[in-house]
């Protein structure tokens, strides 16, 4: 049953992604409305699926690669919807919803059996994974904003304007949303990071479990920490911030895939 819900959500996101791209190209209001409503519908179904899964397993969707990829995709769409409602950044959806879609596709290729969590650490695990993925989602959106920024900046510098130039918002708006996403994502991710470290301490007796995945995790934390503090301290903003947000997210993906395998 939940699988069916996830597949419905998947199609909603697919429709939404396609419509966002068509809207970017053709600027028909109807396309935008369809794109927005299908992503919202997908999100509702996706949420229902996650809730059912959690009821069935008796724990949050955090214990297997399958589960947290589902959750990651869900969190990206959640943060996107909040940004869309709050800030209405033109055409942001074209850069973000496809990420949610691709992650959902990926999750459905993973084995879906339940892995029981150690009851002793259930609560801190829940906290760790929820916060980490909310942080990652904000970083995913900042990545999308970074790409938008570079596209727009390139056109302004080269003075060669493609159709995208007319569609995308101003550099200031994109930079601002990048900043807001990192300002939200970094503290949330940091708390997740700390709870994770404490879990590792409890479980394995050392503060960091020196697995292969720990290194990129550290790198990720340092990158976003730099981006978070650098804006005010050394004027790390605009193009540099966009590039950092892109590099940071590549590091997130490296961390993530090392974790899933």
């Amino acid at each position: 049953m939940q699988e069916k819900l996830f597949i419905i959500a998947l199609f909603c996101y697919l429709i939404s992604s396609v419509k966002y791209f068509l809207y970017l190209a053709f600027r028909r209001k109807l396309l935008f409305i369809v794109a927005n409503s299908s992503v919202a519908a997908g999100f509702v179904v996706h949420t229902a699926g996650l809730v059912m899964r959690s009821i069935q397993t008796g724990q949050g969707p955090y214990t297997s690669g399958y589960e947290y990829t589902l959750f990651f995709s869900w969190a990206i769409i959640l943060v996107y919807l909040i940004v869309e409602i709050r800030y209405r950044i033109q055409d942001f959806g074209s850069f973000v919803v496809p990420m949610g879609f691709l992650l959902l596709v990926y999750s459905l290729t993973l084995p879906s059996e339940t892995v029981a969590a150690n009851p002793a650490i259930k609560l801190s695990l829940t906290l760790h994974r929820t916060l980490s993925f909310l942080g990652y989602s904000a970083f995913a959106l900042a990545f999308g904003a970074g790409i938008m920024y570079l596209l727009q900046e390139r056109q302004l510098k080269s003075k060669k304007f493609g159709p995208l130039f007319y569609r995308l918002p101003s550099l200031e708006v994109i930079d601002d949303i990048n900043h807001k996403l990192v300002a939200f994502g970094f503290p949330v991710f940091s708390i997740g990071f700390i709870t994770g470290s404490m879990l590792a301490l409890k479980g394995k007796g050392s503060f960091f479990s020196w697995q292969l995945s720990t290194l990129p995790l550290m790198v990720t934390w340092i990158i976003y920490g730099g981006l978070f503090t650098g804006r005010i301290a050394v004027g790390l903003r605009r193009k540099k911030a966009a590039v950092w947000a892109i590099i940071g997210f590549l590091s997130v993906m490296a961390t993530y895939f090392l974790h899933v395998y």
Partner: peptide
Amino acid sequence: RAETSIAENAVSISYAAVELAKKIFDR
């Protein structure tokens, strides 16, 4: 007017300057 952006882009030097300013700065 509603479904196309036929009237949106500047066709004079001084308006073009404003339009570019609005692509760099938001407000």
